[in-house]
Design a protein around this nucleic acid. Structure first.
Length: 423
RNA sequence: GGAGAGAUGCCAGAGCGGUCGAAUGGGACGGUCUCGAAAACCGUUGUAUGGGCAACUGUACCGAGGGUUCGAAUCCCUCUCUCUCCGCCA
């Protein structure tokens, strides 16, 4: 979340930035400032009261030690009123703080300077395109047909076992998934990311720290019996490794990668946009996460974009990179680049990665800090990106590489898949 | 799931109603010494928040939340987690 000091120093600028992402209650900013003033005043009053009680208690102790009972009793009686007042002030303080916290977490991150204003996907800016769109024959099939033809994914049985949107990969389809996961992880670790295999459920504190709560409450699967959430991305457990951690400056940057299944309720979507593997409730993804010094975070963001770009290029897929406009960015992000690959048979772009700089938004919630050269506590910056989300990559690979009698496997993947084609 | 033990600072580990933000040891950092290093010795080694330009100072924090008390790391209750044993189990 945003730091109160920043909000208080530049309230107009904060509102201006929030407007870039179409935030609809800028009055929250003023409410937060007022509440913080109230908090300070109450804190001061409480501290004073408590100090008087503490010093009286000390004196009572001394009187007791001296055997001066009457004086001790007299003092006790004299601070009874202070005690009641201190209790009242303390409760008031707790209420104010809770209130303040509640409002603070409703503020999204501020878009970076270079974020274009805009309402939705149509206002995103194409940064660059790469790769070559294939010329497919007239009778080219969309991936949901190819999947049937080559017996790679069985949606019906997945629906029988669990429900719609839970694909059952089988045979070469399952193997292709495994090859992709392994290739992606190898690619990431070869560039200095440390591999993790995190828990696939997280507690409330973790979901809150990375910003899924309270913003995306209904989009996560919630295991109510144990009050745990199925992760929507490995970002959540992996970033939380560093919750409540104070780092040394020389421990940064921290570079992590993890494979995980991702669970998303995505209530209310249906239609042709969600056919086949385009949108599902459970999918596989490999994620990269970095914790870095603030002064480097935008360089690191560029580096991560290039990292993901290299991965997409290695798969020989046509792609484009978008800079998201304010209205389309995630709640916690300051700047996001999306990667889309071109699915030739569907003739549409599919999002396969989202690379974001969260600046100190997540780390402020998480309390992940480092000590700078002057010994002052500073918030670390966090970033993450998909490298990559599997189902749409698979959809694109199948569609773009189909031939009359087989589906060709990209060269980099062949040693993982163990063959040059799916027959 | 059953029985027991525990949770204290970067780590280990004392403290079991007042003078404890917390002994002691280790580590880390700075210094003296040295050509340099080791050893030895000296010093430093919280977090949050309030007030103050600052020096400094108030308050809170000994797993979390409640309670008893003038006063709680210390006593009571609830929860969470860890460890040991048993059961179950990939």
């Amino acid at each position: 979340m945003l730091q109160v000091t920043v909000i208080k120093q530049k309230p107009d600028w904060v509102k201006e930035r929030l407007a870039i992402r179409n935030f609809k209650n800028p009055e929250l900013v003023d409410e937060i400032i007022a509440l913080d003033d109230e908090r300070r005043a109450t804190q001061t009053a409480f501290d004073t009261m408590q100090a008087s009680i503490n010093s009286a208690s000390k004196n009572i102790g001394q009187y007791m030690a001296q055997g001066n009972k009457e004086e001790a009793e007299r003092l006790k009686a004299s601070i009874a009123g202070n005690k009641a007042e201190a209790t009242r002030l303390n409760e008031q303080l707790a209420t104010i703080e809770k209130n303040l916290q509640g409002k603070l977490i409703m503020l999204p991150n501020l878009p970076a300077d270079r974020v274009p204003a805009g309402k939705g996907a149509e206002d995103n800016v194409v940064v660059r395109e790469g790769g070559k769109k294939p010329q497919l024959p007239e009778n080219a099939l969309p991936h949901w047909e190819l999947i049937k033809e080559y017996n790679l994914v069985d949606f019906e049985t997945g629906a029988k076992i669990t429900g719609s949107g839970f694909p059952l990969y089988r045979g070469n389809g399952a193997k292709l998934q495994r090859s992709l996961v392994q290739y992606f992880l190898d690619y990431n670790t070869s560039k200095g990311y440390t591999e993790y295999l995190p828990p696939f459920m997280v507690n409330e504190a973790s979901a809150y720290a990375t910003g899924q709560l309270p913003d995306k409450e209904g989009q996560m699967y919630h295991v109510t019996e144990d009050n745990l959430y199925l992760i929507p991305t490995a970002e959540v457990p992996v970033t939380n490794i560093y919750r409540d951690v104070i780092l040394k400056e020389n421990e940064l940057p921290i570079r992590m990668t993890a494979y995980s299944p991702c669970f998303r309720r995505e209530a209310g979507s249906f239609g042709k946009d969600v056919r086949g593997l385009n949108r599902v409730h459970q999918f596989e993804k490999v994620e990269i996460i970095q914790l870095v010094l603030p002064k480097y975070s935008y360089n690191v963001l560029d580096e991560m974009v290039h990292h993901v770009e290299g991965l997409v290029q290695s798969l020989a897929l046509p792609y484009r990179i978008l800079k998201l406009c304010g209205g389309d960015m995630g709640f916690t992000s300051a700047l996001t680049y999306d990667f889309e690959v071109y699915s030739a048979a569907q003739q549409r772009w599919l999002e396969v990665s989202s690379v974001s700089n969260f600046e100190s938004y997540q780390t402020n919630r998480m309390k992940c800090r480092y000590k700078d050269a002057d010994g002052k506590m500073q918030l670390v910056h966090s970033l993450n990106g998909s490298s990559l989300a599997l189902p749409r990559i698979m959809a694109c690979l199948l569609e773009n590489n189909q031939t009359e009698k087989c589906i060709r496997i990209p060269e980099v993947l062949q040693k993982y898949y163990g063959s040059a084609m799916i027959m």
